[in-house]
Design a protein around this nucleic acid. Structure first.
Lengths: 176, 176
DNA sequence: GACATACCTATCGGGCCGATATATCGTGGC
DNA sequence: GCCACGATATATCGGCCCGATAGGTATGTC
């Protein structure tokens, strides 16, 4: 039937909605606290995409105002559930992207002042340490959603600790 | 003077051009082989950006056709050199982004068939192994440009090996 | 009652990717 | 000498996406 190709953001939305009825606002919040280090979204993407998904029959929106404040709560339709499952079990190539200005500066570091380079390496390391610390403080998120969210959180902590270690070693190799 | 704010792509272009006069085509090739795992560009970005940079006086393009094939070779102006230096030594916050559909699928894995999940973990691991192998095969790139490029290459190999190890451990923890 | 903070929807400018189109050059095979 | 093919080179389009901003209501606190 509805042989829909999901845009990347649509997949996140369907997944988050399956964790419980959600408003666009809640989806954004959830992504920000639980997936920030490996996925981002923006309101400018979420609200139009929710409408597109509703038009495609993959989600259903119900008006559920809080007093005089308009509010639309979304839930998955059967088709939306199937589309999410189809994506989850498809062997399609998975997007993996990284965009790191810290590495870019290192790449172009020829001829720069060694002291400046050392400062740079330190600040990049501190950035990773800060991310790891924030993930640790945050604690488990999206409880009751299976082992995925805690595993992903562990991944984020371990990755950022590894990154911090790499930049630390780079710093030391410059000194030597 | 020219208090120019560089777009992210502009920084890559200036850096690559400083490594030697370059055409848009060569810039794209260089990014693809040496920075692919942490930065990307596209022709659709490079050519318009080169023109913008020329208009801002940061690069200078010279026509240098190969027979009947048009070709424009760019070099840095003094202002472009200064703008690149200014960015390299600025303490501005550095973009760091990751976009990983593998983690996304893991995040939403609740209720899925364990065998499917194991397949997923394996394919993500193999992806990282393949990237590490490709970087290793590629060998050093952009020689004579200081310690940056080889260090970045080492980073890429080490990162992807670490990633492969993490997914491997995740696989084993599922089995247990 | 005032004020800050959280909740909720919406939109715009512009960066950016992937694909595609067009054309020439160099090389190897025949 | 010719053809096919891959590399070189520039250009553009559709569409995804981010960050910022704007405008509004509810809730909690002093």
């Amino acid at each position: 039937m509805s042989d829909v190709t999901l845009a990347p953001t649509a997949r996140v939305i369907l997944g988050m909605v399956r964790m419980g009825k959600r408003t666009g606002y809640e989806i954004k919040q959830l992504v920000d606290v639980s997936a920030r280090f490996f996925w981002t979204t923006s309101y400018g993407q979420i609200y139009p995409e929710l409408k597109r998904l509703e038009k495609q029959g993959l989600v259903r929106g119900e008006a559920d105002p809080t007093g005089g404040r308009s509010r639309t709560v979304y839930s998955l339709t059967r088709a939306g559930d199937a589309a999410l499952d189809a994506w989850l079990s498809s062997p399609d190539e998975l997007v993996w992207e990284m965009r790191d200005e810290g590495l870019l500066k290192l790449f172009f570091s020829e001829g720069r002042d060694p002291a400046e380079l050392r400062d740079h390496l330190r600040s990049v390391r501190e950035r990773s340490e800060a991310v790891a610390a924030r993930l640790r403080e945050l604690g488990p998120v999206a409880e009751g959603a299976g082992p995925g969210p805690p595993m992903v959180r562990e991944f984020g902590i371990a990755l950022n600790e590894w990154l911090a270690g790499w930049w630390k070693r780079a710093e030391e190799s410059i000194d030597a």
